[in-house]
Nucleic acid binder design. Structure first.
Lengths: 182, 182
DNA sequence: TTCGTCATATATCGATTTGTCATATGTAAA
DNA sequence: TTTACATATGACAAATCGATATATGACGAA
């Protein structure tokens, strides 16, 4: 899959038009957040470029005080390019975990620091799971397309597995959980 | 955690000395492969730079035919820098999945292509799991430090969860598995 | 009331990183 | 035999990140 920021933006815009700022928010907080990332520094140039190439149209929305909102919408040509990008087999998943690196090199850090790192990771996983659970509830009412459901289910499975493993390896964490549930 | 290619190289070299090529192989095929990635284009400059800064020592090994092998070893100063980098709480896991992007935008691709993508992902997961299983067997005999065991267990849990979810969502895949097991 | 900071909104820029190519050569299979 | 792969280092363009700059309004705290 020709997967880059361009393809990502086209994909998000295929659901609804949006400004660069809104795209970033959607990628950070929406469905996408579980499996992809992008920064302003790559989004804005990509939008400008694709607009120039005719893959997007641009509409300026005046706003009081703030800079004009530049709302981008995908064109038929853009949809064609997106479809072409998707028509290649996707590359393998890539997973980056500083936590696991730290666990591997644990003989270099104090027990106290390691516990802190484990706690943080536990919190990260829990929060991600909670976010998905919230989305799943929210989604029931509105559109529930197959893709979203699949992605949320995948994320839930994987995160829960990681959380279970972590708690099994560090029984201390379960106490924290029980205390919080009281 | 000040996590970048430098820290990564120092971490790998803290176990044993190695050349740039061997580092890349270790990162691709060893423990590290499950949670990090790095290319030659970033490894070689990092090694050169860290050697100049005194974090590494360099020893040239002559080889017949091939270019000299440049074997790097970590110094006490390097170990100090590594420890300092590790003494910061690790950033959250980052997960990149073209497969999930494709699943989310499935209305843009044909059913045939989607099936191919699912099959590929299934194969990817299975192969990764097999690699870990092999490593777990291999490790029993040699050193079995806590870090390695933790990382392998984590990887196994997460990959198995993904595989189970995939097979539950696409019952077609189970048949393939049974056929292969015959 | 002034101060900090958060949210909205766009954009640039240096630093980092990736991915591809170039350069060698030996081994082994097709 | 010629094609591919493994060893080995490195350069380089392109992509991407992360931090920062620029505005403004809202909201609560000192």
């Amino acid at each position: 899959m020709a997967m880059n920021v361009r393809t990502l933006c086209l994909g998000v815009l295929s659901f609804k038009e949006a400004s660069g700022y809104e795209l970033k928010k959607e990628i950070e907080e929406g469905m996408y957040s579980h499996f992809i990332d992008a920064s302003f520094g790559s989004i804005y140039p990509a939008l400008t470029q694709m607009n120039a190439e005719g893959l997007l149209t641009l509409r300026s929305e005046e706003q009081s005080g703030r800079p004009d909102k530049k709302v981008y919408a995908i064109t038929d040509q853009g949809r064609a390019v997106l479809a072409k990008s998707l028509a290649v087999l996707p590359a393998s998943n890539k997973f980056k975990s500083e936590f696991l690196f730290e666990m591997l090199l644990q003989h270099f850090v104090s027990k106290e620091h390691l516990d802190l790192a484990i706690d943080k990771h536990h919190t990260d996983l829990s929060e991600d799971l909670a976010k998905i659970a919230q989305k799943q509830l929210h989604q029931d009412k509105s559109k529930c397309d197959a893709g979203s459901l699949f992605v949320m289910g995948y994320g839930e499975s994987v995160l829960r597995a990681a959380l279970n493993y972590l708690e099994a390896q560090c029984p201390r964490l379960k106490k924290v959980k029980l205390t919080a549930a009281e």
